[in-house]
Every structure is written in structure tokens, then in C-alpha cells.
Simulated assay, not measured.
Amino acid sequence: MNAPAREPAVGTALPGTAPALFVSEELPFPPVPAALAGALQAQGRAWFATRPVGSSPYDFHYFLNEVETQPDVADYAVVGFDGHGTNSWAVHFYLVQKGIALFIKLPWGGAYLEPEPARAQITEMFDWAAALLSQLKRAESAGKIPPGMRLHVAASRFDHAGWRWVAAGQNAAETPWNPAGGMRAAVLQELEGVIAGRALVDGANPQGQRA
């Protein structure tokens, strides 16, 4: 069983950079875009962000609510480890920028967590996130994403999970989420459809939310 790196012994120094912190946990680094990765700064005991934020990353809903109420929030990324108690610990990767608001929170570091299955799940999720960002970039480069349209993705084993498109000027708080079941395949399939021109041509009725 691995000891939680989030609660190191007194006097134990944590790695000074975000990538080194993930290496110390034998975890892959999440796919933070290069433009943001260089701006990551230590914000807490074991997490980094590209800007000051009003909450530690374990408060998943703080970040969801922020992007709902402040759709023009500046691009940012948050990565690292946070939690409380003996078993409420998680790895976090939050990314908000043009076209995407992605929030990933998965179990890591709790006293009762089996590390190898958890490590495999985290690796798989980060690989999927990299594929999602690549597909989204393709869709944007092809001019298939209407101005102001953003894909919201919430992937948490503790909190809310699901995905949806939110258009410019749309009330995100009243926009329904597609269910989390089969989400990873559904989102990639959705983006393939967007690239092929089968969805989001004018920003109305995105696939998966049709009337």
C-alpha cells in the first residue's frame, strides 16, 4: 500500500515542479497544453495552478460553478493532489480554455486505496484526455466549433460526472448534462461527428442534446 504523498512526514520536501511531483508518485503527467504548463506554480502543499484560485482542488464543485457563472474566466490549469482525512484523497487535472472546460478528479493516495488499479485508471483517463484535446484541436482548426461554444466535461469518482456543450450566452446552470455512462467513447465519437460536419454546424442542438 502506498503512503499518501499529500501528507508527508514533517521535514519531508516535496518535488519543486508539477511534473516532478507526478514522477514521484509514478503517475503520468496530465496533458496540460504547453502554453499553460510553463505557468504552473505551487499553490498548496501538493498542487499547482497557473493562477491564484479561490479553493483547493478537492472542492470539485467550486471549479464547476466558476466556469458556469464566469464563462469568460481566463484560461487556466490546475494539477496535483489534494484531500483530507485518511481516504478522501485524489489526483486532479482541471483545464479551462477556449472550447473546453475539463475537470478530472480520481482517487489517489488514500490509506485504503490499492495503488496499481488506481494508477492504471489514472493513466487511462489521462490518455483519454489527451485524445479529447487532440480531437478538439482538429475540430477547431477545421472551423467546426462555433464561436463561444465550449465542451464541458466532468469526470469525478467522488462528485458529479457527465458532459455537455454550452453555447455563448447560454445559461450553463440550466443546460442539461449527458450521462456519465460510456462518456469517454461518447465524447470522442461526438468530436468525430463534429469534424465530419455532422454536428455543431451553426451551434444549435449539439449532438447528444437534441430536442
Rank of each mutant, 00 (worst) to 15 (best):
P33N: 02
R150S: 03
E26S: 15
P31L: 13
A74D: 05
A49K: 05
W177F: 14
A168I: 06
A180D: 09
Y58S: 13
G109N: 08
A120Q: 15
P33R: 09
P28H: 10
E116P: 09
V194C: 02
Y62E: 09
M1Y: 11
E190F: 13
L14M: 15
D75F: 01
N87L: 00
S141D: 15
F103M: 11
G162Q: 00
E140D: 00
A196N: 08
W47C: 06
A142D: 07
G99C: 02
A196L: 03
A5L: 13
T17V: 01
A196C: 03
A35R: 15
Q121P: 01
D159Q: 12
A199I: 05
E66Y: 04
I100Y: 12
G85T: 09
L40P: 00
A74M: 06
P115K: 07
M1F: 11
V53F: 08
G162E: 01
P19N: 07
F93H: 05
A131R: 15
P8K: 07
A168G: 05
E25I: 04
E68F: 15
A161M: 05
A37Q: 14
A139W: 00
R119V: 00
G110K: 13
G110M: 08
A18L: 05
V187H: 11
G203R: 06
Y76V: 10
P206E: 01
G143W: 14
P117I: 06
A211H: 03
T123G: 15
A168V: 02
E7R: 11
A46Y: 03
L102D: 03
S24W: 02
P117G: 13
I122D: 09
R6L: 10
A101T: 02
F60K: 07
R164A: 15
L136S: 04
H84Q: 12
A49F: 12
Q189M: 11
W128F: 10
D75C: 00
H160M: 14
A3D: 09
G110Y: 14
D202Q: 12
I100A: 15
A34M: 03
K137Q: 14
R138F: 02
G143A: 05
V194Q: 08
A9G: 15
D59P: 01
A49C: 07
L188I: 05
T50G: 13
R150W: 02
L21W: 01
E192G: 14
E124W: 06
S141T: 13
A172K: 10
P31H: 13
H92F: 07
D202L: 00
R210I: 12
V32W: 10
A173C: 10
R164P: 07
L113I: 14
N2Q: 14
G110N: 13
K105M: 13
L132E: 05
V91F: 02
S134I: 00
V53Q: 12
I122E: 01
P115Q: 10
F29Q: 12
E192Y: 09
L151K: 04
A180V: 00
F29C: 06
A39F: 03
M1I: 03
E26G: 10
L132S: 04
P15Q: 02
Y58R: 14
F48H: 03
